[in-house]
Amino acid sequence: MAAVESRFRVMGCEAHVVVVGGGRSHLRQAEAELRRLEERWSRFLPDSDVARLNRGAGSPTRVDADTLTLVAAAVELHRVTAGWFDPTVLPAVVAAGFGASRHDPEAVTRMATSAVEAPAPGCGGVDIDVTAQTVRLASGIAFDPGGIGKGLAADLVAEKLVDSGAAGALVNVGGDLRVIGSGPEGEGWYLEVEDPFQPDGFVVRLFLGDGGLATSSRLRIRRRGDDVRHHLIDPRTGRPSGSPVVAASVVAGTAWLAEGYAKAALLAGPEEGIDLIEDGGVAGLVVLEDGSVRISTRLGVFL
C-alpha cells in the first residue's frame, strides 16, 4: 500500500511521520496536531498548560483534556515503575543545568518552587479532577512530563490519523514512536533501536504490528567546566544518575508507556531495570557502558 512520509522539527527534536493509505493532508494534520500538543506541554512556553501548572502550584489549574491524560499517565507510570519514573523531579533537572531550552536559551522553565538538588517528592501531591478539568499540584511540587510527552503525542496523533481514514501510521517524535494499523508492506513496521555508541548503526531491528517503542539515553549532557552532567536525574537523590546503563529501549502497547519504562529501566540499572521491564509485562533492552546489551525475555517475539 502506498505510503507518504515527512520529517520536521517539533518538541525540540525531529519528528518522522509515515502514513499508509492516506495522503499529504494526513501529514499536515499530524504536524499541526504535534505543534498543538507542544504548545500545551512545553515547560519552556509560558502559556503552556505545564508552565501554568508549575506557576500555579498550590491551586487548581484548568488544563486541556489531553493534558489531563498526560498527567494521569505520568502518575500511573510513577506507580508501576516503583517511583523510578517520577514527573516531580523537575526542580532537580533545573538545578542540574537543564532549565532552559537547548534551542532558545531565553526560553526557561518557570515554576513556583526553587531549583534544588534534592530527592523528588513523588506524586502524592498531584490531584486530578476530570469533572472540573483541573490539576492541582501541592506547594513545592513541579511537574515535568519528560519524554512521555513525546510518547503520548505520538500515540494521540497516530490514533487520530487512523480515525481520519489512514490505513496505518507511524509517528516518531524524537525516538519515541507509535505504529498502528497497516505498514507499508501490509503486515507491520520495521523499526530500529539506535546504537548509542554509533548513531548510524542499530542495536536491534524490530518488527512490530501495533504498539510503541521508545528509548531513553543519557547522551544529552551539559558541561560546566570539568563538571559533565546529563539530564536523567535519579529521583531518589536529585542528582544525575550514576547508572551504568547508557540507553534503554522498551516496546509496549503505547509509546508513552514505553518511554516511561525505558527511563525507569535506565535509572534503575541493569538488574532492576530488566526486572521492571519483565514485571511490567513489556519488552525491552538495556545497553551498558561496556557495550554489552541485556534483553528481556519478551523482546524476542519482535526480532
Binding site: V18, L170, G175, Y190, V193, P196, R205, T215, A247
Partner: peptide
Amino acid sequence: KPTKVVPTRVPISKSNGSR
C-alpha cells in the same frame, strides 16, 4: 536467526534517546 530482510523502499524509523 538472520535479520529479517527488509524490503527496499520501506520507510524504517529509528528509536533513540532524543538529543
